[in-house]
């Protein structure tokens, strides 16, 4: 059962975005994040951002429902910030006019609903949603290994100031390599403990947490043993750190990456211009 989980959130498909160089995708994600932060809710900036997010998903051939899948875990955070902003932000208090002409300000005890609060709440919803949707796209369209490679190459200038970039990337690779192996092993240990009468599925929370100890300890010990053997095998294959190492899979920038970069820079410029001249403010 544990074996079926996927590592990362890679969504296999063949699309323009999937075929981009991972470095391009990583850098352009930052461009996208910058655009989301630059855009303001008082003009058509947010409309552009939302349209762009949708367009990117369509080009990547990722179903739109994946956006919501990505957003699910952060819904509590969004709701929390929205409620706090809605109820506590200072400003002009919203008044409701009853049918008989009497106006009532929306205020009760320490809570109040202001125009600024509503404005800010909407901004947060759009901003966080677009941010998560845009960055999830990076992990949907890029294999974890490609991402590791991209990070290693992009950070390689830091090697000059003794940042262990290669070692970090190697650790990531080995972690990714061993996740399925360790999951498999967890499964086996769980079965073994169940066969000895361990009760893993019921009881109070504390009882269940305690029941995990006989699973985690053998798992840890075996992980250390594996690490030891792997180190020996790597030594046998002449591994000696990143120095003088070549790469089998070369990352290549193609025309495709140029097109993608141009589009994203155009998009960023558009957002900046819209923000600067407040284009379309009358529509909002």
């Amino acid at each position: 059962m544990l074996k079926d989980i996927t590592i990362g959130q890679y969504y296999p498909s063949v699309s323009f975005v999937h075929n981009l160089d991972p470095r391009t995708k990583l850098l352009l994600s930052f461009v996208f994040i910058a655009s989301v932060f630059i855009a303001r809710p008082y003009n058509i900036g947010y409309a552009i951002i939302i349209l762009m997010t949708g367009a990117l998903y369509i080009i990547s051939k990722i179903p739109v429902k994946m956006i919501f899948k990505g957003l699910k875990p952060i819904i509590p955070i969004i709701i929390f910030t929205v409620v706090i902003n809605l109820l506590f932000l200072n400003g002009e208090i919203v008044e409701i006019r009853w049918i008989d002409g009497e106006t009532v300000p929306l205020r009760w005890w320490i809570f109040k609903i202001t125009y600024e609060g509503i404005n800010y709440a909407v901004t947060i919803i759009i901003r966080i949603s677009c941010l998560i949707a845009g960055t999830s796209l990076l992990t949907y369209t890029t294999r974890p290994m490609e991402l590791t490679d991209a990070i290693e190459t992009l950070l390689s200038p830091l090697k000059k100031i003794k940042v262990p970039v290669h070692e970090f990337a190697m650790m990531m690779t080995i972690a990714l390599r061993f996740i399925p192996t360790l999951i498999d092993e967890t499964d086996k240990i769980m079965s073994a403990q169940k066969a000895r009468g361990a009760c893993l599925d019921n009881g109070t929370l504390i009882q269940r947490a305690k029941a995990l100890i006989p699973i985690l300890i053998p798992l840890m010990i075996s992980a250390f043993r594996r690490a030891d053997e792997l180190a020996l095998a790597m030594e046998c294959r002449c591994y000696n750190g990143g120095e003088g190492r070549t790469k089998f899979k070369q990352l290549r920038i193609s025309a495709r990456d140029m097109v993608a970069a141009s589009v994203m820079i155009l998009f960023l410029s558009l957002v900046i211009i819209v923000n600067k001249f407040n284009i379309g403010w009358f529509l909002v």
Partner: peptide, 11 residues
């Protein structure tokens, strides 16, 4: 080596 799992480095 003996254990097939503990000598493969690549994903």
């Amino acid at each position: 080596f003996q254990n097939p799992d503990n000598q493969i480095v690549g994903t």
